Amino acid sequence: MDVDDYQAYLDGDEYEYHGGFHDVSPVVLEIPYDSYWYLVVDGNVHRIKVSVTGIFD
């Protein structure tokens, strides 16, 4: 999510996101355009373990 959509997510307002539901690992995400991004991982009712790797500036 970009900064505006992330704030809307936190506020409980409508927001847009890139990605979706994934039930296999690893997941490779592509950033649609240059900006600051927030990665939100929601395990619903399940506890999940998350690891993030990649090329970061």
Rank of each mutant, 00 (worst) to 15 (best):
Y17D: 03
S35L: 14
S25N: 05
Y36P: 00
G54W: 02
Y15K: 03
V27H: 05
L10W: 08
D4W: 14
S51I: 12
Y17F: 15
H18L: 04
D11L: 15
F56N: 01
G12E: 06
S51T: 13
T53I: 08
A8P: 01
V52G: 00
V41K: 07
V50T: 07
Q7T: 11
W37A: 07
A8W: 07
D34Q: 14
D5Y: 05
D13W: 13
Y17H: 10
V52P: 00
Y9R: 02
V27D: 04
V27R: 01
E16A: 12
E16F: 12
G20D: 04
L10H: 09
S35K: 14
G19E: 03
I48C: 04
K49A: 14
Y38G: 06
M1S: 07
V50M: 06
D57G: 09
Y9G: 01
Y15R: 00
I48M: 03
D4N: 14
Y6K: 02
V45T: 13
F56M: 04
E16W: 09
S35Q: 15
V3I: 11
Y38D: 08
M1V: 10
H46K: 10
P26C: 06
E30W: 09
A8E: 08
P26Q: 04
V52M: 05
H18F: 15
N44Y: 15
D23H: 09
G19A: 05
Y6N: 04
S51F: 10
Y36A: 15
D4Y: 15
